[in-house]
Design a protein around this nucleic acid. Structure first.
Lengths: 134, 134
DNA sequence: CACTTATGCAACCGAAAGGTTGACAACATT
DNA sequence: AATGTTGTCAACCTTTCGGTTGCATAAGTG
């Protein structure tokens, strides 16, 4: 039941959607970087401005921004010595799509009677899903 | 413009929402773990079943599952020696909320004339967002 | 009870993350 | 030209990560 599903696959190809997701999720796993994203959602800002609230060096923040940039979450332009950072919100779509896809499927499975029926079927509900993911 | 906003702050308190997000995002930063989540969205599965497709040891997968469990994405029950893994889809809400919040704000800012006006204001658009994010 | 199945735990390892400091490039100002 | 500002690069250190192997544990099966 429930067609085979497109099946994602672990292709490590650099530049692939998988690789992109790796970077985006990893980038947002750090609280400082998430906070930076949060602040950039309100307004563009320079490295110095962004670094100010935290108790780490500007270099550290510069590194964080590089991570965010490599993940495609932030872009930087130039204004004299300053390099204003801008949030690229489109990347959020990538994550949202991934999340929603599996959330929906899980909820679907949960709300359908399948779960209940399977539970009544007792022990053999474990082997009907072999084609799973990739 | 744009009220102060709840402001998140970098509280490292273990168990806090911030800490939770750290773990969830970090958990999903690994392609194998994302794939496991994908497969679990289709059906519960045991460690062995989950490990089979990958070229790593079962212990490695066991570790991955621990990470997912600590992040609250997966729960495990018992069935004889087997420990069926189940996807806890509610956690997705936490991420979705976080993402949508800032995505929306960024888009709002983009679509409103603020950006244009601020740009015309030239240099002084940088100091109106101090209380940032939450 | 011995044996196989299914998992977890501990120790170890190389690589990557996140931080620091110190030098340096680029531009503005004087 | 000299100086200050803004940001990056490079080297280094420590901690975490993802993987391995080997052994222990738990629970069905002969």
């Amino acid at each position: 039941m429930a067609e085979p599903l497109p099946v994602p696959m672990l292709d490590p190809a650099s530049g692939s959607s998988v690789d992109r997701l790796n970077r985006v999720f990893a980038a947002l796993a750090d609280p400082i970087r998430r906070d930076i994203v949060a602040r950039l959602s309100a307004a563009d800002a320079t490295v110095g401005e962004l670094a100010e609230p935290y108790e780490v060096s500007t270099q550290a923040v510069s590194k964080h921004l590089k991570v965010l940039e490599d993940a495609g979450l932030v872009s930087r332009s130039r204004d004299a010595q300053k390099r204003p950072c801008h949030l690229e919100a489109e990347v959020f779509d990538l994550m949202t799509k991934w999340i929603e896809r599996y959330r929906r499927q899980a909820e679907e499975r949960f709300s359908r009677l399948d779960a209940v029926l399977a539970a009544m079927d007792d022990e053999n509900e474990n082997e009907d899903q072999r084609g799973a993911a990739s």
